[in-house]
Design a protein around this nucleic acid. Sequence first.
DNA 1: TATTGTTATACTCTATAACTATA
DNA 2: TATAGTTATAGAGTATAACAATA
Lengths: 145, 145
Amino acid sequence: MATRPDLAAMMLPLARTLTNAELPVLERFGLTMWGYVVLLHLDDEPVRTQAAFADAIGADKTRIIDYLDDLQERGLITRVADPSDRRARLLALTAKGRRLRDTAQAAIQHNEQRLLQLLPATERQRFLRTLRRLAEAAPEVYAED
Amino acid sequence: MATRPDLAAMMLPLARTLTNAELPVLERFGLTMWGYVVLLHLDDEPVRTQAAFADAIGADKTRIIDYLDDLQERGLITRVADPSDRRARLLALTAKGRRLRDTAQAAIQHNEQRLLQLLPATERQRFLRTLRRLAEAAPEVYAED
DNA sequence: TATTGTTATACTCTATAACTATA
DNA sequence: TATAGTTATAGAGTATAACAATA
């Protein structure tokens, strides 16, 4: 008999509850979850190609195209052919895109505080630190699967 | 600018990596993820109706039917009409079902230890305790959404 | 010939609606 | 008429394959 619930059995429903609760928040800014994820990672991830970028955010190159189209039309990102290899597209945030990203992320994290504030400050910080470590380590631990 | 990654942005990819890594483990026992979830909860959740049971495990009544059929055919669960209301079906684990559930869960948690063993024992226990608390609280915190 | 981005297609998962049997 | 279970249908999300442009 198990002495604890499965890790995944606790984590997956919690993660889904969270993301479902965040969709209405993003909608206030006209953002989908994938659109938000693109904005979030555009500064951090070096953007060599759309395919590599898609892979870095856990999508694939065919799925993000509609979202890139939308973000570009709204002036939130730029997408221009790389002069040194005109097959590739250089993606970048515009100033407007960065402002929207920061505003949306503040709203998202404010919404997450509704849950996190249940925890004392020390426990909350410990939890976030450990979670971050596990999230970074997991892809390597389970790489061969 | 954010001082931490979004909670959901850490948790959802981690949860998906975990569940993907667990699918091959379940497959060794001839179980799908939903089949496993059914076995896991059959003793704990009071089974009034299939619809209520499905809701309790985060599914809906139409989705679990094929899995119930399979588990029943393999002698892992019983599903008989309730004598007091022959519309309803009484679900229960068989002895064989309980054995398979315990064996599979042991394998699942062993696989999760590959990740959790990165943490010192104290940090690991703290993390699991906090995660459990958040997982239980989240549905209520975000209930109105 | 190989690669980038795009489009087209198929497949899986999930949600909704219709059906039957009991009440 | 209402409810439990089932089946059928439709939709969303995702993966795979084919295509045009560039290298």
